[in-house]
Each structure stands twice: as structure tokens, then as C-alpha cells.
């Protein structure tokens, strides 16, 4: 297996080399979004305006944004920045990236015929899967890291009313990386049994949205069902309020990544490539 690591890296690097423009687009988009969110804080009226808006948010929407009722009174710039990591723009960018990568990695390669060039070489199928997974996970990591960098740049360059510690946002970025990784690996499972990119992308997006909604509905947002939902383990407001990233959440997200990767490898190894 160790002998095959160079092959895995060759596939990961080759994929990254061909798709770096889209990765840069997603990552710079996420970075700019977080930066602009902070720099527009004074323009929208600062803490008073944000608090007044938060008070008007109905309980159901507060649940959607993971704003706990007891945070409402003390909702400040730190919570506002954390909300940027739960904003649909950021989540949409990260999710779209992993869905696109996962759908193209296996189903897309079969659909276009490129897979026949790679798998006619003396490499095992899992090498291809792991190479593609690595590229996706690396890309998701870069998006999360640049999001934090956008936040940090905004905090450094803007005259904010408080000194903002950046460590919690780094932990949020790590949490986001694990979340996107878990979502992407879930779509990889679908990609491993299909040969239609659009079909996998559509189904993957639908499943991600359904999982997001399931984490809001009372019936499915509590353990044990919620333990299997990656969204349940992503909670930026909680990280800001405690300053800690739950090791359980990270362990479950990493467990999701490993399990989904193993399922993908198993399914892809035994399927017909046509």
C-alpha cells in the first residue's frame, strides 16, 4: 500500500492542476465574503442594529441559524462574524465545491471516458478514489482556510469596537473543513455507482439540503438520528461562545469521512465501468 502513495499523489496533483482555477474562484469568493461581512458591520449600524434585527427573528429561523435564545441579549460582533460561517453564501460555496468535485471525480470520469486512460495503467481502483478524495479534501481545506484568512484580514484592517480573538474562527474553519469533507464524501458514494455527472450533482445537492433541513426539524434534530447528520456537528455560534471545538463533533465528522470513503472504495472496486 505504501508503494502506491506516489500514484495517489500523482492523481491528486493532476486533478488539482487541471481544476485549480475553479478552486481559486471558490476560495477567493469565500475569503472576500468573510472580509466584506466584517467591513460592512459598521455600515449596517453596528451592534445596536444587529441586535434589533436578531430580536425580530422568529424562533424557527433562529433555530435555522443556530442562534440560541439566550444569546439574543448579548449578540455582538463576535456572534455576527460567526454567523458569516453559517451564511448561505459561505455554506453554498463550500457545498457546491465538494458536490462538483465529487460528482466529476468518478461519475464524470466515466461519463467522459477519461477513466479508461487511468485505469488501463497498473493501478488499483482505490488509488484513483483516494487520489480524487484527497484533492477534494485539500480543496475544501483551502476554502475553509481562506475564509478564516478573510475574517482575519477584516478584523486586522477594520476599526472594530472590540478586540476580536481569531482562534475561535480558526476552529470554525476547521469545523467547516470537516463538514464540507463529510458532505463531499457522501456525494462520492453516489458518484461511485453512477456514470452521470449531472445526476450525481443533482442528487447530492438534494441530499445535502435535506440533511440541512433535517437538522432543523424537531423530530430529526436530536440524537440519535442527528448524530448521523454532518450538519448537526457544525455549530459556529457555539464555538464562539465556548471558545472550543467539540472533539466529539470533529470525531464524528472524521468518522463520517472515513466511513463514506470506505464505502466509496468498496462500491467502486466492484462495479462495472460502463
Amino acid at each position: 500500500m505504501i508503494n502506491e502513495i506516489p500514484m495517489v499523489l500523482t492523481i491528486a496533483c493532476a486533478t488539482l492542476r487541471r481544476k485549480w482555477i475553479s478552486l481559486v474562484t471558490f476560495a477567493v469568493g469565500a475569503c472576500l465574503f468573510q472580509y466584506l461581512l466584517i467591513t460592512t458591520y459598521p455600515a449596517i449600524g453596528g451592534a445596536a442594529a444587529v441586535n434589533s434585527v436578531v430580536r425580530t427573528i422568529p424562533p424557527a429561523l433562529r433555530r435555522l441559524l443556530k442562534i440560541a435564545p439566550n444569546l439574543q441579549a448579548s449578540f455582538d460582533i463576535r456572534d455576527y462574524i460567526a454567523l458569516g460561517f453559517f451564511h448561505p453564501v459561505f455554506l453554498g460555496l463550500g457545498s457546491a465545491f465538494v458536490v462538483a468535485r465529487a460528482a466529476d471525480a468518478l461519475a464524470g470520469e466515466i461519463e467522459h471516458g477519461a477513466i479508461y486512460l487511468v485505469l488501463s495503467r497498473p493501478i488499483r481502483r482505490w488509488v484513483l478514489v483516494v487520489g480524487k478524495l484527497l484533492e477534494m479534501l485539500g480543496g475544501a481545506g483551502i476554502i475553509a482556510l481562506l475564509s478564516w484568512f478573510g475574517t482575519a484580514t477584516g478584523v486586522w484592517t477594520d476599526s472594530l469596537p472590540h478586540r476580536i480573538p481569531l482562534t475561535p474562527y480558526f476552529l470554525i474553519a476547521l469545523n467547516a473543513w470537516a463538514l464540507f469533507g463529510a458532505l463531499g464524501c457522501g456525494v462520492f458514494v453516489m458518484s461511485s455507482v453512477s456514470h452521470r455527472t449531472a445526476q450525481v450533482a443533482g442528487l447530492g445537492t438534494t441530499c445535502i439540503l435535506l440533511a440541512f433541513v433535517a437538522d432543523i426539524l424537531p423530530a430529526t434534530s436530536e440524537p440519535p438520528v442527528a448524530l448521523f447528520n454532518p450538519w448537526h456537528h457544525y455549530d459556529p455560534p457555539a464555538i464562539v461562545s465556548t471558545g472550543l471545538l467539540s472533539s466529539t463533533s470533529i470525531a464524528l465528522l472524521v468518522g463520517w469521512i472515513i466511513a463514506a470513503s470506505a464505502v466509496t472504495i468498496g462500491l467502486f472496486a466492484h462495479r462495472d465501468l460502463d
Binding site: A14, R18, E111, H112, G113, A114, I115, Y116, L117
Partner: peptide, 13 residues
């Protein structure tokens, strides 16, 4: 050596 009918060479490569 294998020359497939549909090589699907990546346009970006």
C-alpha cells in the same frame, strides 16, 4: 498499451 475509442481527454489538461 490501450487506446480507447473515447479517450475523454480533459480539455483543461
Amino acid at each position: 498499451g490501450f487506446v480507447p475509442d473515447v479517450a475523454g481527454l480533459d480539455p483543461a489538461a
